[in-house]
Amino acid sequence: MNGGGSFTVAVASGKGGTGKTTVAVNLARSMGTRVTLLDCDVEEPNCTLFLYGGIITTREVGIPVPEVDESLCDACGECSRFCAYKAIVSVGSAPLVFPGMCHGCGGCALVCPRGAISEKESRIGTVERSECGSVTLVTGRLDVGMAMAPPLVRAVKECSRAGEPCIIDCPPGTSCPMIAAIRGADMVLLVTEPTPFGLHDLGLAVNAVAEVGIPAGIVVNRTGPEGLDVGAFAKERGIPVLLEIPDDRRAAEAYSRGELLVDAIPGWKSLFELLRERTVAMAGGRMTREFRQGRDRRPE
């Protein structure tokens, strides 16, 4: 079975450190077809630690930020009162602009009665593309000190290719950057750990995904005898658990060496192929009831 045509899967988690990137890169490697992996975790992109390939192109991404012509400004403060983000501030003088906080909405230029504000492009980060075997990796990198992740996330997402499956490594959490990353995906894989904190954040992520109206499946990472029963939570919320990844010292070792689990641990290839099959089925809306209720098979 191959990756099955064109669909988009977003890999997300309610908090960082759950193994979201691990799932994204191993799933990408297990697709069996050409696939585009979009690293939208722009504040801390680390898919490149696991997939190597020379950077083919790097492109700068910017947003329009205001530029004030002080000779036209009469310090009326309209711009400052308008901006909900406090990115332009006038205190009885020509305004100060904080480009790192500007959302590029263009509103201040519109409300300025003196026409003193024009827009200039201000860099927020870069988008890199590299080829790593069957995986085209596109990485968004937000410049240090920039608060504006969503426009960069959208720029990364523009790099998906028609006719090819696409996997998105989302920013952690459930705020605007994560929403920007999952929007438009066919399904979301929510990666969690079987701990009280993990379950709490999973609950938040489930709510966020439901609000956007995208079907979700759960991947439980580092399961073991001490872990909480994520299955009960999943059942309650009507979301299938698509895979349980056992807690295994070899996985941590592979991670620290920057190796893919599917390459480093015998038998784990089939684990991620199972995830691929279930993901493809769900993204294509072909998941049967029986399949939905099925729990994972452990690797032989």
Binding site: S80, Y85, K86, V89, V91, F98, M101
Partner: peptide
Amino acid sequence: QGAGIQAAE
């Protein structure tokens, strides 16, 4: 965002 800026303003 901008609590500090707002207070300064």
